[in-house]
Amino acid sequence: DHWEIRVGDITIHLKDVDEEIIRWVEEALRNGDDLEEIKRWVEEVLR
Rank of each mutant, 00 (worst) to 15 (best):
I38P: 00
D16I: 12
D18R: 13
E27Q: 09
E37T: 14
I22G: 06
E4D: 04
G8F: 00
L46Q: 07
E20Y: 14
I5K: 04
G8C: 03
G32P: 09
I12D: 02
A28F: 10
A28V: 11
D9R: 02
W3Y: 09
V45G: 06
E4N: 02
L35T: 08
E36R: 10
G32A: 10
K39I: 12
V7I: 14
D18H: 11
I21Y: 03
I38E: 00
R30C: 02
W24I: 09
R47M: 02
V7P: 01
V42C: 07
E26A: 03
L46P: 00
G8W: 00
L46Y: 02
D1E: 11
I38T: 02
W3C: 13
D34R: 15
E26M: 11
A28Q: 10
H13S: 12
H13P: 07
E4L: 07
D16P: 14
L35F: 09
E37N: 12
E43D: 12
N31P: 05
R23D: 02
I5V: 10
E26G: 03
I21T: 11
A28L: 10
G32N: 08
V45S: 07
L46A: 07
R30V: 09
E19V: 14
D33G: 14
D34G: 11
E36I: 09
W41V: 11
I21E: 01
I10D: 04
I22S: 04
I21N: 01
R30E: 06
N31M: 11
I12G: 03
R47N: 09
D18F: 15
E4W: 03
R40G: 05
H2G: 10
W3N: 07
N31V: 11
E43S: 01
D18C: 08
E19H: 15
R30Y: 07
G8H: 07
I5G: 03
R40V: 02
R23N: 06
G32Q: 08
K39N: 07
I22D: 00
E20H: 14
V7T: 02
E43I: 01
D33W: 15
K15I: 15
R30P: 01
H2D: 11
W41M: 14
L14G: 07
D34F: 14
N31R: 14
D33V: 15
K39V: 13
I38K: 01
V25D: 00
K15P: 09
D34Y: 15
I12H: 03
L35V: 13
D34T: 15
V42R: 00
H13Y: 06
I12T: 02
L46K: 04
D16R: 11
L46M: 12
I5S: 02
W3E: 05
T11D: 04
I22H: 06
W41P: 00
E26N: 05
G32M: 12
R6Y: 01
V7D: 03
V45T: 08
G8D: 04
